[in-house]
Simulated assay, not measured.
Amino acid sequence: MNIAFFLVPKAEIICLSPENSMRQALERMEYHRYTAVPLVSGDGVYVGTITEGDLLWKLKNTPGLDFENCHRVLLEDVPRRLNNQPVNIQSNMESLISLAAAQNFVPVIDDQNVFIGMIRRREIIEYCRELMLKKTDAAAAGSGN
């Protein structure tokens, strides 16, 4: 199975730039109800993922920082706790599944590390569920039940 089958293209994804402010990130994440968003540089390269937790810890650990002035802090200055590893579009299902076990979504890049989309864990789980059901049905048919 080609992992491109699961790809949600970049055009359908909310992304942020490291040059966006914390306030922009908080407002977009709230509006879209996301807990994590890919960070993509101006030239399209995947740089990482920013999470609600990253923003919360920055607010907590920066004296004088609050929602009213967080527009002054760029996302590139917010430490990220997790490192969502991307997968190359040419990768196999095994690579994808091992990353998806630890990430809600897997960023997908091309050979130049340009972000081209993501694959959500939900779709991978659904695919595996369908495979299991097919095996169960085949086994039942083979045993005459």
Rank of each mutant, 00 (worst) to 15 (best):
141 A>V: 05
56 L>S: 13
41 S>R: 06
56 L>G: 11
30 E>S: 15
3 I>N: 01
34 Y>S: 01
132 M>E: 01
47 V>S: 10
61 N>E: 12
85 Q>A: 12
7 L>D: 06
22 M>Q: 05
139 A>S: 10
127 Y>V: 04
15 C>A: 14
34 Y>C: 01
86 P>R: 05
20 N>S: 12
42 G>I: 00
26 L>A: 15
75 L>P: 01
87 V>D: 00
128 C>S: 04
112 Q>M: 11
50 I>A: 06
42 G>F: 03
89 I>T: 07
77 D>I: 05
21 S>C: 07
119 I>Y: 03
64 G>L: 05
110 D>N: 15
38 P>L: 10
125 I>V: 15
14 I>T: 15
141 A>S: 11
31 Y>I: 09
16 L>R: 08
78 V>N: 00
130 E>G: 01
54 D>A: 14
142 G>K: 07
144 G>D: 08
74 L>V: 05
130 E>C: 02
86 P>N: 10
53 G>K: 12
1 M>I: 09
83 N>C: 08
144 G>P: 04
72 R>D: 03
14 I>P: 00
30 E>D: 12
79 P>Y: 02
30 E>K: 14
43 D>R: 13
43 D>E: 13
138 A>M: 09
26 L>Q: 02
113 N>E: 12
13 I>P: 00
106 V>N: 03
135 K>V: 11
4 A>D: 10
12 E>D: 11
127 Y>F: 15
16 L>A: 14
34 Y>I: 09
129 R>W: 03
6 F>P: 02
25 A>G: 08
33 R>A: 14
90 Q>L: 14
60 K>R: 15
84 N>A: 10
126 E>A: 10
20 N>V: 07
32 H>L: 11
24 Q>I: 10
96 L>Q: 04
112 Q>E: 15
33 R>S: 12
14 I>D: 05
118 M>T: 05
47 V>R: 15
123 E>H: 08
92 N>F: 05
136 T>V: 13
47 V>A: 14
120 R>Q: 08
136 T>N: 01
143 S>Y: 04
20 N>Y: 09
37 V>L: 06
17 S>K: 07
25 A>Q: 03
26 L>M: 14
54 D>H: 11
134 K>C: 02
96 L>V: 05
111 D>A: 14
69 N>H: 11
33 R>M: 07
33 R>L: 07
